[in-house]
Simulated scan of single mutants.
Amino acid sequence: MEQRIGSSSQPLEGAGFDPAFIPGLTSPVSDEAEEARAEEAGDADADEPTDAAAEPEEAVEEEAPDGPVLEASDRRAKFIADHQGIRLSLDDQACEFRWDEIGAVETETPRFGKRFTITVHTPDRRWYPIEIEAESRARFAEWDEQLDAVMDKYFEDETPETKEEEPEESD
């Protein structure tokens, strides 16, 4: 008679068990991790790819437009909205959304307390909330104004239907 050791059930899949299941929720592999893997493999050419990877990052920083930016953070959470899109991070987890991946952005200020909630909604009906603890409630208005400026500059809410409804000038 054959006897099996261990569980006969298969591992579950999905976002509840694997954060990488949701696209954009986990960050891509960093240059440091790639460099460590290259050293472990013993590649002699490991220095060349890291130098090449560092050059585009510097170029991106130089080409960043002088537009509005919102950076809000506390000891655990961080929210950044700029020309690239929106980036959320909580502890060691991070996700980023380009402007074309965002359906809406919602803010919520509590009646009591100092936790400011920002929720990013995607077109496929998923939402990603993050709470940031402010030093004072006065920061809520400042963050709302900065987020409005960023959204006005980079987020395009026009759909083809609204463009068609605009009246055309005729002589």
Rank of each mutant, 00 (worst) to 15 (best):
M1T: 15
M1F: 15
E2D: 15
Q3T: 15
Q3I: 15
Q3Y: 10
Q3K: 12
Q3N: 13
R4Y: 08
R4P: 12
R4N: 08
G6W: 03
Q10C: 13
Q10I: 05
Q10F: 07
P11H: 01
L12Y: 12
L12K: 06
G14V: 03
G14M: 05
G14Y: 01
A15Y: 01
A15I: 09
G16Y: 06
D18K: 11
D18M: 08
D18I: 13
D18H: 14
D18F: 08
P19H: 02
P19M: 02
P19W: 00
G24Q: 14
G24N: 03
T26Q: 13
S30K: 04
S30T: 05
E32F: 12
E34F: 01
E34D: 13
E35K: 09
E35H: 14
A36D: 11
A36E: 06
A36Q: 14
A38H: 00
E39N: 14
A41H: 11
G42W: 10
G42R: 13
D43H: 00
D43I: 14
D45P: 07
A46T: 02
A46W: 08
A46N: 01
E48Y: 10
E48W: 09
E48C: 05
P49S: 07
T50R: 09
D51Q: 12
D51H: 02
A52R: 14
A53R: 10
E55A: 04
E55N: 07
E57P: 01
E57W: 08
A59V: 05
E61F: 03
E62H: 02
E62W: 02
E62S: 02
E63I: 02
E63Y: 04
E63F: 09
A64F: 07
A64K: 07
P65A: 02
L70M: 09
A72H: 05
A72T: 03
S73H: 13
D74Q: 00
R76W: 13
A77D: 11
A81W: 03
A81L: 01
H83M: 02
Q84Y: 04
Q84L: 07
G85H: 01
I86D: 07
L88N: 01
L88Q: 06
L88G: 06
S89D: 13
S89C: 06
Q93V: 00
C95R: 08
C95L: 11
C95F: 03
E96R: 04
R98T: 15
D100T: 09
E101G: 02
I102M: 03
T107D: 12
T107I: 12
E108C: 02
T109F: 11
R111K: 15
R111P: 09
F116A: 09
F116W: 00
T117R: 06
T117L: 12
P123E: 10
D124M: 13
R125A: 07
W127N: 14
P129M: 10
I130C: 04
E133S: 13
E133Y: 04
A134M: 15
E135T: 11
E135W: 09
S136Q: 08
S136V: 08
S136D: 13
S136H: 05
A138N: 12
F140E: 05
F140Y: 05
D144H: 08
D144A: 11
Q146S: 00
L147W: 06
L147P: 03
D148P: 02
D148F: 09
A149I: 05
D152P: 11
D152M: 12
K153M: 02
Y154A: 04
D157P: 07
D157N: 11
P160G: 00
P160K: 01
E161R: 10
E164R: 14
E165P: 01
E165Q: 14
E166L: 12
E166N: 12
E168V: 10
